[in-house]
Design a protein around this nucleic acid. Structure first.
Length: 213
DNA sequence: CAGTCGATTCACT
DNA sequence: GTGAATCGACTGA
């Protein structure tokens, strides 16, 4: 039986390109997460590019550490980090090995396994909120640090995969500054999203934290 | 080794 | 719109 082309896994060569090329090209693609309870699939609607050690907004800015080591490895693998003491965020490593670049998967439309996603996203009022934001996306897909380093090009039966999906045309892609990124990393328009899509998260400028007493 | 802060989300006003 | 939650990684002394 011939599989429809939109179910074809993206090959590693897809990710082995400059991150600013890959990021917008991911919009409209299908992210497949195979959980113990079944598959969850979403259509990617919002991403952000992080461009290696020269990018002040990137975790790779100060070089390789235990946490970001995966970003320095080969493309097509998942970089998952834990932040704010509560949340996980999911990236896909891009560029040649050593480029330390990645795309943060910020939002998507859950199309398969909504009931599974909802179990983990009890505060979501509408389906469009299930993966509206990077930590929400990771929560909905049951992604945590145990998936750090997972090869997303290993095929649709692996815990994580990206399929061809239905990529959007260039005139559907909008760009703007990255959300929540401060300092010198705030100016580059390296956030990409699908125009007028209801699952895209709202932009927020970086907010310096107030001192706790 | 203590201090600071985060590629965020949620509850509340 | 504002502030709390919550902890591991990183920084600098």
């Amino acid at each position: 039986m011939i599989e429809s082309s939109d179910r074809t896994p993206l090959p590693r060569t897809f990710f082995d390109r400059p991150v600013l090329e890959v990021a917008p090209d991911l919009l409209g693609r299908t992210l497949v997460r195979l959980t113990d309870d079944g598959p969850i699939e979403l259509r990617l609607t919002e991403v952000e590019a992080y461009a290696g050690e020269a990018d002040p907004g990137s975790h790779a800015y100060r070089g390789r550490t235990a946490r970001n080591a995966v970003m320095f490895g080969p493309p097509g693998h998942a970089y998952v980090y834990f932040t704010y003491g509560m949340w996980h965020c999911l990236n896909l490593v891009c560029g040649p090995e050593g480029a330390a670049s990645g795309v943060l998967l910020r939002a998507g439309e859950v199309r398969v396994g909504q009931e599974l996603a909802r179990k983990r996203r009890l505060s979501a009022r509408y389906d469009k909120e299930l993966a509206k934001g990077p930590a929400r996306l990771a929560t909905a897909l049951d992604v945590d640090r145990t998936l750090d380093g997972t090869d997303a090009c290993a095929g649709p039966d692996s815990p994580l995969a990206v399929l061809t999906g239905d990529p959007v045309s260039a005139d559907q892609v909008r760009t703007g500054p990255r959300t929540g990124v401060g300092g010198d990393g705030a100016t580059q328009p390296w956030r990409f999203w699908i125009d007028d899509d209801p699952t895209v998260s709202p932009y927020r400028a970086h907010t310096p934290r107030r001192k706790r007493t």
